[in-house]
């Protein structure tokens, strides 16, 4: 493990608001002055009440939401100002995201859905499929389902496919949105094991865990996002 002192993820003073142009141009501030950093090999848990902005922060980091101001540095690239292609490159090679929802092209087999992150960085097909198969096996997805599209799977199965996909490639930085929610004990243990392994190889991780014991097991420290809630203007 190479725990360097330069943070992998470095967020400085990020603000975010939504302007609803079609609803009387109402502006809703949702985040103000968000600042945090995560070093390689470290896992930081985001906490705070529902609606405090945990998922919003994750989406800002992933470049899914556009920050109004501030800097979001991932491996040196400022996501808040980067070109789309730079963000795409970052997502391919540096920053992984396990969201709560699986979004895939219908008809693509589960094995290929999981292998895709590897294929997009040029891993040979056979090698990528091997890795995908091993992850799916670890997460107890029955082999007879691998050739089917995950769109028809149950919620729990879809979530495990999503996790397998998220862990297929060894990203130096990862965002995990409720990776253990609604998993049985065995699969939950597997996922926590995957997180531990990722930490051990030096990944910087930001996670949202409602499951308190999971949170305690993998997180090195916690950040309460309520602190970044916009102050109500007086």
């Amino acid at each position: 493990m190479t725990a360097s002192h330069t943070p992998m993820i470095d967020i400085q003073n990020v603000c975010k608001s939504f302007t609803l142009h079609n609803q009387g141009s109402a502006t809703i501030p949702v985040m103000e002055g968000a600042t945090l950093s995560v070093s390689p090999g470290e896992c930081v848990g985001l906490v705070g009440a529902s609606g405090a902005g945990k998922s919003t922060l994750m989406r800002l980091i992933y470049g899914n939401y556009l920050a109004a101001s501030g800097h979001i540095l991932i491996g040196g690239l400022d996501v808040a100002q980067a070109e789309p292609r730079e963000i795409l490159e970052l997502r391919r090679k540096t920053l992984g995201y396990v969201s709560q929802f699986l979004r895939v092209v219908p008809r693509v087999s589960t094995l290929d859905v999981v292998a895709e992150p590897l294929l997009s960085v040029g891993t040979p097909v056979e090698k990528a499929r091997d890795r995908a198969a091993s992850l799916l096996a670890q997460l107890n997805i029955p082999e007879r389902l691998w050739s089917l599209s995950p769109t028809t799977f149950s919620g729990g199965e879809q979530q495990r496919v999503n996790i397998a996909r998220g862990f297929a490639y060894d990203y130096p930085a990862m965002l995990l949105d409720e990776p253990t929610a609604s998993l049985d004990a065995q699969n939950r243990a597997t996922v926590l094991g995957l997180i531990e392994t990722a930490k051990a190889r030096g990944a910087a991780i930001i996670g949202i865990f409602h499951d308190e014991s999971a949170r305690e097991q993998v997180c090195d420290r916690f950040i309460d996002v309520s602190a970044f809630s916009p102050k109500v203007a007086a």
Binding site: F18, T19, L20, H21, N22, R59, G63, N64, Y65, L66, P84, I87, L88
Partner: peptide, 22 residues
């Protein structure tokens, strides 16, 4: 408006894009 596909669709900035997405 231009930008990353998921960003434009999930966090549209321009009034017209917001209308289109919604």
């Amino acid at each position: 408006e231009t930008g990353l596909t998921d960003q434009v669709l999930d966090d549209p900035q321009h009034a017209y894009t917001q209308l289109l997405v919604s």
